[in-house]
């Protein structure tokens, strides 16, 4: 269960599963091999990382404490968190109207307003994604995946904003966030505290 036992293809697969939380479908040869090494758990159609798998990916992805990119990465991450908060609030507004009832998407104005606000969020995150990719090449793919989700949303399928079952905008965003935390080496608790601090600092 160490780095040497995992080849490149397997590493990519393992990172992807840890970042996403799980995969579904038929187990590939890489999946089987990783499962035999105790890094993945295959349960029927669901494939999940074991704690050992998660720890290994954490080690692999984490930027060294003295890495030159770290300072700018952290600065960009500080800008990312308030936008992260906005995105989650927006997803909530997409799913639930202000009065607490479920959004049945029968009000085109309400949905159009949310979609417009989503553009604000996408505009805000665009320069951040560019910086992330410059500092950490592994993070390059997220811009394209987010855009693809937007395209599918605009093609008329409402699921592509926040459905957890597909690579919706929110799902890809979650993966990005998870990937960032693994790269920085920050825990969820620290991340939540930092986000809260940054967000409340902006309001009097």
């Amino acid at each position: 269960m160490s780095q040497e036992q995992v080849n490149d293809a397997e590493r990519e697969v393992l990172v992807s599963i840890v970042v996403r939380g799980m995969a579904r479908g038929e187990a590939s040869p890489e999946h089987q091999s990783l499962a035999e090494s105790g890094l993945l758990l295959i349960k029927g159609p669901m494939i999940m990382p074991t704690p050992a798998g998660t720890a290994l990916v954490g080690e692999q992805l984490r930027l060294a404490a003295d890495a030159p990119e770290r300072e700018r990465l952290m600065a960009t991450f500080h800008r990312f968190l308030p936008v992260n908060r906005n995105l989650r609030d927006l997803c909530t507004a997409w799913q639930m109207r202000p009065d607490g009832s479920v959004n049945d998407h029968s009000d085109p104005s309400y949905d159009a307003e949310i979609r417009d606000r989503l553009d604000d969020i996408d505009d805000a995150v665009a320069p951040l994604l560019k910086r992330f990719a410059e500092d950490v090449p592994d993070l390059t793919g997220y811009r394209e995946r987010l855009t693809e989700a937007l395209d599918r949303l605009d093609a008329g399928d409402n699921a592509w904003l926040a459905s957890p079952l597909i690579d919706s905008y929110h799902t890809v965003w979650m993966h990005l966030h998870q990937h960032l935390l693994l790269t920085i080496g920050m825990s969820r608790a620290e991340d939540e505290a930092l986000e809260e601090q940054l967000v409340s600092g902006n309001h009097g």
Binding site: V18, V19, R20, G21, M22, K43, M46, M48, P49, T54, R85, R88, D89, C91, T92, Q95, M96, V102, A162, S163, P164, L165, H170, M174, H175, Q178, E192
Partner: peptide
């Protein structure tokens, strides 16, 4: 995200932290 399989298998979700805009809430509603 690592909890997604469990969230899918469950009939309901109860968390200690997080608000109605938390990750758990967004995913549960979805």
């Amino acid at each position: 995200p690592g909890d997604l399989p469990g969230m899918m298998a469950a009939a309901g979700i109860l968390t200690v932290t997080g608000g109605s805009a938390s990750h758990a809430a967004v995913v549960a509603r979805g």
